[in-house]
Nucleic acid binder design. Structure first.
Length: 837
RNA sequence: GGGCCCGUGGUCUAGCCCGGCUAUGACAUCCGCUUGACUUGCGGAGGAUCCCCAGUUCAAAUCUGGGCGGGCCCACCA
């Protein structure tokens, strides 16, 4: 070859396989390629392949992917890609959770409107338009930019007509099954947002307050007055006081049993009762029960059938029972009442305290309990079954099941699903104006909006009245998002895969540990109630991505790390590399240096591939006698292939258990230490030498091809972009698959495990290592030539003879001799081999 | 109050289920080298009472019990 053509050739290679890997160009390029070629397509017509279906967590609106998403979705994607390469028809849908209060709040803020000014219909329209046109496209772009292999054509929104239909049907089915009931009940209520809220929407907040010792008066049998001191933080609830409790074993108060006490400032007598929920240690040991100061008050009301006096109304203000305090907020009323108590000498002391108060997590307003008609799902009777269902699920990691069990064991209420907000899925229900009879929508009419549409009947079946009122409340978002498996499956109605999908649980639910008690739990409950089966076989619980100091990321703390910024600074593969390094379920402070390590790995993969492929120019794996080559492989090649197979085995086994991080670390170790640092060096002399026997060169080329391709495949779920970039540049020509991501996962070939070769190879590597150490300690260049190498273990002669050429080539030794020399060895290696020069 | 997880060189971490050589790797530090893919590289060095105490065992980072420390979930919070 003339020097001119050689240069030309060089340039061509450069262009085809540039010296540097540029993720900013490559990543978007391959993302488009996958889109165009529908690499992540779920095939609904395919009834032969096994389905692997993932109940992907639909992100809530905000329009931007945050690091937690990037982390969790990457991990989910590793599993999806692994399954795809293992021959599964993978269903990885893309949903968004646009339902409910978060959306309502966001849209109000973005559009500077108030939901109640527009009304439900107009406001909902605005929400949906903003979601579809402004927020979702950004979301989708973020997901694609990270290389998540969802089938983006399989999409849903928890507010779209399809989900509305599924959700409303769920309500009707549960109603017909007798599990849906509507009662007047104390429900947690946010006076600020003016809606009922569920237990899970509350959080604790420390608030400064006062313990007020208040005097209740009792008239004893002999006509004398006794004073009863009660400590309370909520004197404004005095008008709603319905009873006084002490602990049954608290002898101090036994004499009061059956008596009544007068409520200060109000002309009311309330009974004095026993209940073991009253704590003798707390306050004065005696407690007043008001409608509804807190959860215990609600329980007492139920247990002792106490009257209900509403002191706080649905507008968040004091009601008429509060007398002169009517119309004030509870906060103001409290101040006024305290003043009046002081004036009447009914307030003994005030002790400042800080106590945790249940507040609505979105607005931090203290939660009140108010009496109203709410829809509940009856499920407290199923606690034992719920525990069984939890046992049937396969948990990764297993200990996360404890949280589920803990939650079930602590359940105290049926599930309140009514919300008094504007944006969401309406109840498919009307009420008869006269008798309040419930009129359900017909299934074929779903989805319906009872505020816009008429009920399916003209007159009430009970009272023959012809007027109906549509339900104004909407269904809480969790009651819909707990239906995601059904929402996804129903998208395929009429497709060949539908029956199969419907008849079995989905394969996997990946999600964070923070929502085990609602999303996971509620999904299990709904799936069992509706379909009598688990929603999925496995659930995979990922941890939280914390800030670099290990604190929770939050906008208010200003410690949010944005994945988009990290992708820009490093690249998507680097971010995914990091996500692949964390073990299951563990929270993890954001390790930015893992992204640096990822970038280095990408560089190493690129360069090693570039080197390897440069020397495979005339190698065509399809026109060689594979069997002949395989039976005549050089020892060091067998050594490498044997080690590769062990990595394939370990990597595949751990991936099957969703322990992808082990697969990454095994691959890392093999690729970097075995393949690059040792093998490529050991085989160089065969590659470069002009006068080497062609078989020996071919053996190296065959090995490089095979091992590099397998390594890329092992890396491909984690690093989809760079592996594709290399596959397309070289391997595609010889392999039939249009993308590495739908090629076959490397197969473990037990017959290629070769302990003899591994021993010999390990010995060679060890001797090379010893020489490198010697040179390093003597500050010699690694290229410096050595005279003959003497090895004092003749029993290794056979083994070393197999790899002698490789050793000499790497250490630049002239040759190797065996036998003891009468001088100190330069060093001794771990095989007890003394080396002499 | 109930439950769960975690505690390993300066920092982060693997190993723990299933006990066994000199405890893994990354980053950082120091010394050296530039081997015809890679200064985003290569070789080497220093650096760990594996939280503490007790027990089981020939043998404990690993198993058991107790303690200390950190975190999370749930409940309570008159």
């Amino acid at each position: 070859m003339s020097s001119e053509t050689k240069e030309q050739k060089q340039e061509e290679t450069e262009e085809e396989f540039p010296k540097r890997y540029d993720p900013k160009v490559e990543e978007p390029h391959w993302q488009k390629f996958w889109d165009d070629n529908q690499i992540s397509k779920f095939d609904p017509k395919d009834t032969t392949r096994k389905i692997f279906s993932i109940d992907t967590p639909p992100p809530t609106v905000s329009g931007k992917m945050h690091l937690g998403h990037a982390f969790g979705n990457s991990q989910q994607d590793f599993i999806a890609r692994f399954k795809r390469m293992n021959g599964f028809n993978v269903l990885q849908p893309f949903g968004t959770d646009d339902n409910g209060l978060p959306t309502q709040t966001l849209i109000q803020k973005l559009k500077h409107v108030r939901a109640k000014d527009l009304g439900r219909t107009k406001f909902s329209k605005l929400c949906i338009e903003t979601l579809e046109n402004e927020l979702k496209p950004t979301y989708l772009a973020d997901w694609k930019r990270l290389g998540i292999s969802c089938d983006f054509d399989v999409k849903y929104s928890t507010i779209d007509p399809h989900s509305r239909k599924v959700s409303q049907k769920s309500f009707i089915d549960l109603y017909n099954a007798g599990r849906q009931y509507r009662i007047d009940a104390p429900a947690m209520f946010c006076p600020h947002c003016k809606t009922a809220i569920a237990q899970v929407e509350c959080e604790d907040k420390d608030i400064a307050s006062f313990f007020n010792d208040i005097v209740f008066k009792i008239t004893t049998e002999d006509g004398k007055e006794e004073e009863l001191i009660i400590a309370t933080t909520r004197p404004e609830l005095l008008p709603a006081c319905v009873a006084i409790f002490y602990h049954p074993e608290d002898k101090r108060f036994h004499h009061l049993r059956g008596k009544t006490a007068k409520v200060p400032l109000y002309d009311m007598q309330v009974p004095i009762l026993e209940d073991k929920r009253a704590d003798p240690q707390k306050g004065t040991g005696i407690v007043m029960c008001c409608t509804f100061g807190d959860q215990t008050d609600c329980e007492w009301q139920k247990a002792h059938k106490l009257p209900i006096i509403e002191a706080i109304g649905k507008d968040g203000k004091m009601t008429e029972v509060a007398g002169k305090y009517q119309g004030n907020s509870p906060e103001i009323a409290r101040k006024l009442i305290i003043e009046d108590l002081k004036d009447s000498k009914l307030l003994l002391t005030q002790k400042p305290i800080t106590h945790a108060v249940n507040v609505h997590e979105r607005c931090e307003t203290p939660v009140e309990f108010i009496q109203s008609k709410q829809w509940f799902i009856k499920y407290l009777d199923l606690k034992d079954k719920m525990l069984e269902w939890g046992n049937e699920l396969k948990w990764f990691p297993h200990h996360m099941k404890n949280r589920y069990d803990n939650w079930v064991n602590c359940l105290a209420w049926d599930w309140c699903i009514s919300r008094q907000i504007f944006f969401g899925i309406p109840f498919p229900v009307w009420y008869c104006k006269d008798c309040d009879e419930v009129i359900l929508a017909k299934e074929e009419d779903l989805p319906v909006d009872p505020l816009e549409q008429k009920p399916p009947i003209d007159e009430c079946p009970k009272c023959k009245c012809k007027e109906f009122i549509g339900e104004k409340d909407i269904i809480n978002t969790w009651a819909t998002s707990s239906l995601t498996p059904t929402i996804v499956k129903e998208l395929f109605k009429g497709e060949p895969c539908y029956e199969k999908l419907k008849s079995e649980p989905m394969s996997l639910r990946p999600q964070g540990h923070d929502i085990i008690s609602f999303w996971l739990f509620n999904t299990v409950v709904k799936s069992q109630l509706h379909h009598n089966m688990l929603p999925w076989n496995d659930c995979f619980i990922n941890g939280w991505m914390l800030d670099p100091k290990g604190k929770k990321m939050s906008k208010s703390k200003g410690n949010v790390v944005e994945p988009q910024v990290m992708i820009e600074k490093y690249c998507a593969d680097a971010l995914r590399f990091m996500a692949a390094g964390c073990s299951l379920g563990e929270d993890l402070p954001f390790p930015e240096k893992e992204l640096v390590a990822g970038t280095k790995t990408l560089n190493k993969i690129w360069n090693a591939s570039r080197f390897a492929l440069m020397h495979l120019e005339n190698f065509d794996p399809n026109s060689i006698d594979k069997e002949k080559i395989e039976s005549n492989l050089e020892v060091i090649d067998k050594w490498l292939i044997s080690k590769l197979n062990k990595v394939i085995k370990a990597g595949t086994d751990s991936f099957e258990k969703h322990e992808f991080s082990k697969c990454r670390s095994e691959t890392d170790k093999f690729f970097w230490q075995v393949f690059c640092d040792n093998y490529l060096e050991l085989c160089k002399y065969r590659i470069y030498s002009e006068d080497i026997e062609p078989e020996k060169k071919l053996s190296a080329q065959y090995t490089i091809y095979k091992v590099l391709l397998a390594t890329l495949k092992l890396y491909s779920p984690f690093l989809p972009h760079i592996t594709e970039a290399i596959y397309q540049r070289f391997f595609k020509e010889f392999e039939s698959d249009i993308s590495i991501h739908i090629s076959k996962w490397p197969k473990f070939e037990e017959n290629l495990i070769n302990e003899t070769s591994e021993n010999a190879g390990d010995l060679a590597v060890d001797i090379v290592g010893a020489i490198r150490k010697y040179k390093s300690e003597n500050q010699l260049s690694l290229k410096s030539e050595l005279p003959e190498l003497n090895i004092d273990k003749p029993e290794f002669e056979d083994k070393i003879n197999l790899v002698i050429a490789d050793i000499c080539a790497v250490t630049h030794a002239k040759g190797v001799k065996f036998g003891k020399l009468n001088k100190e060895p330069i060093l001794t290696n771990e095989f007890g081999v003394g080396l002499y020069l």
